[in-house]
Structures are given as C-alpha cells and as structure tokens.
C-alpha cells in the first residue's frame, strides 16, 4: 500500500534519512521506535507533504505522491499535541475535513454524529476544546482525522502527553477503531511498550535507516532494540522480590 524507496534528507551536513526504503501493507500498523533526532518526525513530515526530500520516491497504492500537495495525498499527520481548532466546537472540529470537501450538510451531520457516538463524545458536541480533558481532546483529534477515511494515518507520539491510565484507554480505543476501519498507520513513539502493544510490525530508526523486524521475537532478541535490557530489568526486580519473600 505504501512503498518508500531510497528516501534521502539532509539538513546541511547532517544526514537524517539515508536511502531509506520500506513498505506498509493495507490495514497494517507499523510502530517506529527511535531516539530523539533520529529522523522519525522528518520521515512522517515528508510522507505528509510538509517537508521535501532531497531524493527518493514514495508510492501510495502504486501512485507517486511526492509531487502532490499535502491536501491531495490522503495522509493525515497527527501531532503529539491535539491542536484542536480553538474557535470551533467539538462537532465542527470533527467535521472539519468534511466541510472543506464541501459535502452535503445532511451527510456531514450524519457522519459526524455517528463518529462522535463511536468515540464516546456524543454528549460533548457543543463544547469548546478548552472545556475538554486531555483524553477527550485526543478522541476529537483522532475522530477529526478518521472522519475523512485517510489512506494512511501518520501518528507522531500522539499519546505522549497523556497520563498513563488515559494513555492505555486511548491505545485500546485507537486499536479497536483502526482494526474496524482497516486503517494503515505509521505510529512513531519512543515508548518501547507502546510500540509493542500498538504495532503489527515494529521498526527501529537508526542512523537514517529503518530496520523492520519480521517478528516481535526478532525485535526482542536484537540487543540494540533495548527490549531485552528492559525485560531483564523487570525479571531482575521480580526475582529480587521473590528472594526477599523466601528469606522472610
């Protein structure tokens, strides 16, 4: 569905993307892990049309898209911040993508109300963004992107600013909706657990290239992924507490 071929991007002398190639299947969620400054955001912005690559090709359902402006690519880029439009209420925020497509009012109302209901926001449609909690704002931002049936969702650490409980709720909701609508997703995070929970496949960005793991077990086995170190840490803690219990 998405084919990225030999993508290159440099800022001055610093190479951020180095002949980067990968593909995403229809309905697949690809989690991308990487340190800060590893080029994850640059990759998403190039795909969304918000930055230009130095070289390379991007095909979406077989069609080259690099020459297209962001509004014609069918990819929605979601930031860590929800960025709800502060002058619009929940309903209008959610309906934004339908309004700019000039759909009939009846259809806009029907589709927006249906999605509001599905996201558990039906009772909040008249509220302004500042009247919502962080989780509710995230639901609206997510709905605003989903309502236009994007070909590909680009998520840049979308749950990074939520507390752990809301974050888990949002992860569950996100997975349920993505499965239901069969949406293809590139999910950038620096949270190892989140990457494992959310992704059908996991990739790691390092030195301008993307390493995609065929299986989760491959990812865990790779010492550079940090997964084994994390598991060893928790195993150590468990064994230590077991030993303490025995001694007592």
């Amino acid at each position: 569905m998405l084919e990225v071929e030999k993508l290159k991007k440099s800022y001055g002398r610093e190479t951020v993307l180095r002949d980067l190639s990968f593909s995403v299947r229809e309905g697949d969620i690809l989690s991308i892990l990487g340190r800060s400054g590893s080029g994850k955001t640059t990759l998403l912005k190039i795909l969304a049309g918000l930055k230009e690559p130095d070289d390379g090709e991007v095909l979406l359902r077989g069609r080259p898209v690099l020459h297209l402006p962001p509004q014609k690519r069918g990819m929605v880029y979601l930031y860590q911040e929800t960025l709800l439009f502060p002058h619009l209420n929940v309903f209008e925020n959610m309906a934004f993508g339908l309004r700019v497509r000039k759909l009939p009012e009846k259809e806009i109302r029907q589709r927006t109300e249906q999605l509001l209901d599905e996201l558990g926001m039906a009772g909040h449609s008249g509220k302004m963004p500042e009247q919502l909690s962080g989780g509710q704002q995230q639901r609206v931002a997510f709905g605003r992107a989903l309502i236009i049936n994007p070909t590909l969702l680009l998520l840049d650490e979308p749950f990074g600013k939520l507390d752990s409980r809301t974050r888990e709720e949002m992860q569950e909701l996100f997975l349920r909706i993505c499965r239901e609508y069969r949406i293809s997703v590139l999910f950038v995070t620096h949270d190892l657990k989140e990457a494992l929970c959310m992704g059908d496949r996991i990739a790691r960005m390092e030195q301008g290239q993307l390493k995609i793991y065929a299986q989760r077990s491959d990812f865990i086995r790779d010492t550079a992924s940090g997964a084994k170190k994390e598991m060893d840490f928790w195993t150590g803690i468990r064994e230590e507490s077991k030993k303490k219990n025995k001694d007592q």
């Binding site: 402006p69 880029y77 700019v100 236009i148």
Partner: peptide, 13 residues
Amino acid sequence: LTMDALAATLGAG
C-alpha cells in the same frame, strides 16, 4: 503554523 499544516493534511487547500 503547525495548525495550518495539520489543516492541509486534513484536506484543506
């Protein structure tokens, strides 16, 4: 500027 970019990816010219 980010809000403007987001609106573009949502389909607004």
